[in-house]
Amino acid sequence: MTIVRGVQARLRRRLLLSYRLDADVARGLLPDGLRPLLVDGHAVAGVCVLGLESIRPRWVHGRWGLRSENAAHRIAVEWDDEGERRRGVYIFERHSSAWFPVLFGGRAFPGVHRKARFRVDESKDRYAVTMDADGESLAADVEVGGEWKSELFPTVEDASEFYRSGLVGWSRRHDGVSLEPVTLTSTAWTVEGAHLRSLRSSFFDALPEGAAVFDSVVVMRDLPIVMTA
């Protein structure tokens, strides 16, 4: 019998930072069975930075819940399933500020997570987030509004549909070999254009020079979500 693990939460803020990634480099980063989803010859990779609150099992009602900051380095992928092409993302690693996804991730909580320290400076439309973990770090300063630019997506709406179609996130289980799918869904879906003030990612900065180039950023705010595995 398959046990479905799932939680519901309120998404305070989600930063979706995208890079144009060299296709050959992308292929070398993926496990067997997954291939990079290309847009104009580029793989689409990036970081998803999530601020969550009211995190609780799907069957628990009310306003009670836990809170966490999270980051996932990932790449858009496609795969074949019974003759049909599917699309989603492959997540290289998930990090969280909270103890419960680190202890129970991949067991009672969807997805394996590693512990990290986060610092968040939020104003009405500006979000500065830093993450430090063993061997990995991230610093992003993003402001909603302003001029939106992208070489991957013609409009913010196109970016929104691209992200919406990739709700299945594959990542390695605790054995480090087999893969687990985690699905993130929302009864509401609103994406806003934003512009980048600064960005540093130890993961993408460590790739060969020129292999990963920042493309664009969008923001999602104040939405209900469900994560299942």
Score class of each variant (00 low, 15 high):
L16T: 00
T228G: 02
Y90V: 01
W99R: 11
L196M: 12
R63F: 13
R107W: 14
H42K: 10
S68W: 06
S202A: 10
D80Y: 06
A194H: 02
Y19Q: 02
H195W: 11
A9M: 13
W170L: 08
E93W: 10
R221M: 07
R86T: 01
H61F: 15
E157N: 12
A133K: 04
L52Y: 08
N70K: 10
E136C: 13
G135T: 06
W59I: 10
A45L: 04
D222I: 03
Y90L: 02
E122K: 10
G176V: 06
G135I: 08
W189M: 05
E84W: 10
V217C: 11
F100Y: 15
S97V: 03
V102F: 08
P181Q: 06
N70H: 14
G28D: 05
G169E: 08
L15P: 01
E157A: 15
A133H: 05
D22S: 04
R173K: 13
G176Q: 08
A26K: 03
W189S: 00
V44M: 07
G41N: 00
Q8A: 11
A139M: 07
G146V: 06
V120R: 15
V25E: 09
A76C: 10
I75F: 02
K149T: 12
H174I: 09
L21T: 02
G210A: 07
A98H: 06
A26E: 01
I75C: 03
D32N: 11
A23P: 10
L138H: 04
E78C: 05
Q8L: 09
G51F: 09
H113W: 15
L15K: 01
T187M: 09
G105L: 03
H174W: 15
I3H: 15
A9F: 06
Y19D: 08
V213S: 11
V217W: 00
G176T: 08
E180C: 13
A108K: 11
R13K: 10
A159H: 11
